[in-house]
C-alpha cells in the first residue's frame, strides 16, 4: 500500500513540476502520511480524524525537510497529501445524486438519499481535514521563522 501511495504522489509531483531533488522526499512523506492514516483506521479511528492526523504528519515533517532541501514546504506537502483525497466517496455521492433525479419509488429514494448524504458529507469533511491538517503546521511555523529572522 505504501508503495502505491508513493507512486500516486510522484505522479502529481511530476505534474506540478517540482524540482528533481525533492522527488524522493515527496514519495517518502506521502507513504508515511498515508500509512499513518491507514494504521489509525485499523485502530478504529474515524476516517476523518485519521486523515487529519495523516495530513498533520505530512505538514509537520515537510517543514524540516523544506529547510534541508531548500524549497518551500508547500512543494512537499501538496503532492504528498493528494493520495488521501476522498475520490471514492465523492464518486459515490455523485452517483447517488444522479439516482435521486430519476423516477424511483419511495423506499428506494429514501435509501439513496441516506447513502448520498452520508457519502457526500464524508467526502467534504475528509477534504476539510486534509487541507486543515496540511496548512496548520505551515501557519504556526511561519510566525516562528519570522521571529528568528528578527532576532538574527
Amino acid at each position: 500500500m505504501a508503495l502505491w501511495l508513493a507512486v500516486a504522489a510522484l505522479g502529481f509531483a511530476v505534474l506540478f513540476n517540482v524540482p528533481k531533488r525533492t522527488l524522493i522526499a515527496i514519495a517518502l512523506l506521502s507513504s508515511l502520511g498515508g500509512s499513518c492514516k491507514l494504521i489509525l483506521m485499523n485502530f478504529d479511528f474515524h476516517i476523518v480524524i485519521a486523515t487529519f492526523f495523516g495530513a498533520l504528519l505530512i505538514g509537520v515533517l515537510s517543514i524540516p525537510i523544506a529547510h534541508n532541501k531548500h524549497a518551500t514546504p508547500l512543494v512537499f506537502s501538496i503532492p504528498a497529501v493528494i493520495p488521501m483525497i476522498p475520490g471514492a466517496f465523492a464518486y459515490k455521492s455523485m452517483l447517488g445524486f444522479i439516482q435521486l433525479t430519476g423516477n424511483i419509488n419511495q423506499t428506494a429514494y429514501d435509501l439513496a438519499l441516506n447513502q448520498t448524504i452520508s457519502n457526500g458529507i464524508k467526502a467534504a469533511f475528509i477534504l476539510l481535514a486534509l487541507t486543515a491538517g496540511v496548512s496548520f503546521p505551515m501557519l504556526i511555523s511561519r510566525k516562528e521563522s519570522v521571529k528568528t529572522m528578527k532576532l538574527s
Binding site: 501511495l5 507512486v7 500516486a8 511530476v14 505534474l15 475520490g87
Partner: peptide, 23 residues
C-alpha cells in the same frame, strides 16, 4: 525546463493506477 511530456504522461497514468489500487 519542465519534465519531458512522455515522462509526465507515464507518471500521471501510474498515479491514477495507484489510486485505483488504493481504492
Amino acid at each position: 525546463t519542465r519534465y519531458p511530456f512522455l515522462l509526465t504522461l507515464f507518471m500521471v497514468g501510474l498515479a491514477d493506477a495507484a489510486f485505483c489500487r488504493l481504492f
